[in-house]
Design a protein around this nucleic acid. Structure first.
Lengths: 222, 222
DNA sequence: CAAAAATGACTGTCTGGTCAGTCAAGTTAA
DNA sequence: TTAACTTGACTGACCAGACAGTCATTTTTG
């Protein structure tokens, strides 16, 4: 398929390392390879041999770390979404920034990641596309990202309402609506970007202006 | 898996029909079966034999109508999304109804379909989940649904702006934002509904109120 | 009865997972 | 220090099952 890619793990990287260190490195290489292959070809169409070759590792080695293909996927999701959580929290915890500015900075960074095909978007799409078939994935994602993410959003919204920045109180019950443009960006990027570009910034700006109220720190004019 | 399902096609239905009529019926049965299986188990995990059994037809017969598995999927998408188009148009063409009411009726019906797992939602999810792997699917969907759908929405928005029903003119450039709650509904239904119910009506109402302006024919109170 | 249509046993291929053997890292002892 | 020895992580040939697509045979129809 693509001959250009080098194995994640080069042999010489392991030289002079402890057994334990090597093992850790190998495990990481396998996960990284699995991430690349799964997100590129999908779970069903990825052969374990591909993962092994991509990782620069023997096929059998995968099974030293993961009981089977599905476990590999599950572990991969776990390890790849956990580091995503702190990307939200610190910004959201900042009580000094107005709600709209705060949400804008949170989402625009995420949308940027998504459209540039970086980890966050890849994982999210993997979960969306395989989640219905692997409820375990959906569950992990729900507990790790959705629940705390919505809680954070709700907190920000609540704060905004108390400060009078947000007019419509119903938003506190529909934090999902804030995330909606994100899904649109993701799906558009993955499926339709060859046919027409979508101006994600405009989308996000309008979404926030509508939901949080036009008035704000934004000095843009209509 | 599920023994309860009867073959789509019963033998006796064919009795006393022309060859041509039988052929048509068989083809339809195969498509319907493929739809059921693909949406339920996904493209990769569906065996052609399953489709055949579900259709009440021999495996070889499938190949009398479709050159291979992928062609079956493509044809299936084509035939299943086409009837979806007129579901929009007639309502949208009604120039007498205010924009918000019109959009609300269009979307609430669609969301209802989605959450009840009917055709529209199934097809949409199939395309979302397989589209990145089968660009042909995405293309068909883009040309058949997205392009005319967005055109219709833009027209409705434009009309709303001219009538002064819609304040923010930017919406005409972001019709995708109107559809966003739909995606959220779909993905939530497919992945997270076991963990928490989502009030789709509230979501849609808030979305429309925000994007089109609070004022309207809606006699609800906050 | 001949032609057309339908069938399902069959084939070649593919792939998830295994396991006996290998060899580098680690350990011991001289 | 280093040579001999031990260990267990790693490997890839192998296996069993699955599956897309074919085609000789059977069934239906006109």
């Amino acid at each position: 398929m693509d001959k250009t890619s080098f194995p994640t793990l080069q042999k010489d990287k392991l030289k002079g390392l402890t057994r334990q260190q090597q093992t850790v490195l190998r495990r990481e290489a396998i996960l990284k390879a699995a991430f690349q292959e799964f997100t590129q070809k999908g779970f069903g169409s990825t052969r374990m041999e591909d993962v092994a070759r991509c990782a620069g590792v023997g096929k059998g080695s995968i099974y030293l770390h993961f009981s089977d293909k599905e476990a590999l996927l599950e572990e991969l999701i776990k390890e790849y979404i956990l580091p995503l959580v702190p990307r939200f929290s610190p910004t959201a915890a900042n009580r000094d920034i107005p709600a709209k500015k705060l949400l804008h900075s949170m989402f625009s960074r995420l949308i940027d990641h998504i459209t540039r095909g970086e980890t966050a978007g890849q994982v999210l799409y993997l979960i969306i596309s395989e989640g219905a078939r692997f409820p375990r994935l959906a569950e992990i994602y729900y507990q790790t990202i959705i629940t705390p993410g919505l809680a954070t959003l709700t907190a920000v919204i609540q704060r905004g309402i108390e400060r009078g920045e947000i007019k419509d109180k119903r938003l506190a019950e529909c934090p999902q609506l804030l995330v909606a443009p994100l899904f649109v960006s993701l799906i558009w990027t993955k499926l339709f970007s060859p046919y027409k570009k979508l101006d994600m910034d405009k989308l996000l700006a309008l979404s926030l202006d509508s939901l949080l109220g036009e008035a704000g720190e934004d000095d843009r004019h209509g």
